[in-house]
């Protein structure tokens, strides 16, 4: 029984890891960032490239991936998203385009493959990420074997969630972000530099996706399409949890993870997936604004 709960917890933490960045960009800024999955992918490729070219270890690539994807996110906000605030559907299309650009850049090795130049670690193929030996295997807790890698993901997700909470609720910039969430024009009228705060928020959200990418690379396959399916799961969590609510995302991820793990244990994975989607539909019908939402003015 404990093993099933642990799997559910682990599934939830993976969902939350991807959704955390989205909860910020979508929740705070009202941008449907379809390129979020690609940020995860870039984070994973940073791990691959860091190991190949800089001889970086797995853990050392965590801050590097955060920096790379945050910078990329900052650039995307500056070049594309900034011009589209308040146009929800346009941001969806534009960031989807950005997602395809990033994917193809990795697949075509930034266009160099046309000239017969190949960069190790890029290209259309599957990439290999080496995980430290101590992370593969199990520890025994309370008579049950627990997967160390999944435990590690839970710890990282927990740390990032706490960090994000502190950032949002205990710092000046957090107050500014929350003010913009409620009413951007009023916030601007009160002297908040909305442009700057938005750029930083987007960069931070993207950076979180990069960290998620490093974690994913250790036990999933690294290839250019890997982010596409993750972004769907991420949005699912954000929408169920309630847009703009951090605690909502945490609880939604936990709930969906446990349902998925529980149903999969009793029946099978395919049915579990269907049940999760069914549950999401039901929640959206009953509570269209999600489990936890505030009224924006």
């Amino acid at each position: 029984m404990l093993d099933v709960i642990f799997i559910g917890l682990s599934l939830g933490s993976i969902l939350l890891l991807v959704a955390l960045g989205l909860a910020i960009t979508y929740g705070a800024m009202g941008v449907i960032n379809m390129a979020h999955g690609e940020m995860v992918m870039v984070g994973a490729y940073t791990t691959v490239m860091g190991a190949l070219w800089l001889k970086l270890g797995f853990l050392a690539s965590l801050p590097l991936a955060f920096a790379v994807t945050a910078l990329l996110g900052w650039a995307i906000e500056r070049i594309v998203v900034r011009r589209l605030y308040g146009r929800l559907l346009d941001t969806l299309l534009a960031t989807w385009g950005v997602a395809i650009l990033i994917q193809q850049a990795v697949r075509l090795e930034f266009g160099l493959s046309f000239f017969g130049i190949h960069i190790r670690g890029l290209g259309p193929g599957l990439q290999n990420v080496t995980v430290p030996e101590w992370m593969t295997g199990v520890v025994t807790i309370g008579g049950d074997q627990v997967n160390i890698y999944r435990l590690f993901i839970i710890v990282v997700t927990l740390a990032l969630t706490v960090l994000t909470w502190v950032l949002m609720y205990r710092t000046d910039i957090g107050i500014q972000i929350r003010a913009i969430m409620r009413n951007p024009r009023m916030a601007a009228a009160c002297g908040i530099d909305v442009d700057r705060v938005n750029a930083l928020t987007f960069a931070y959200g993207s950076g979180l996706a990069g960290v998620a990418g490093v974690m994913m690379s250790g036990f999933k396959t690294v290839f250019p399409d890997m982010g596409t399916s993750m972004v769907v799961d991420g949005f699912m969590v954000v929408v169920v949890g309630g847009v703009g609510s951090l605690i909502g995302s945490v609880l939604a991820a936990g709930l969906l993870g446990q349902v998925n793990g529980g149903v999969a244990a009793v029946t099978n994975d395919i049915l579990a997936r269907a049940v999760v989607f069914g549950l999401v539909i039901l929640i959206i019908i009953v509570k269209p604004t999600g489990l936890f939402s505030f009224k924006s003015r």
């Binding site: 799997i7 599934l11 999933k220 399916s229 999969a264 244990a265 994975d269 395919i270 997936r273």
Partner: peptide, 12 residues
């Protein structure tokens, strides 16, 4: 048992 093609969540 089966898992959806392209899915990679093998925990359960």
């Amino acid at each position: 048992e089966y898992l959806e093609l392209g899915h990679s969540e093998w925990g359960s």
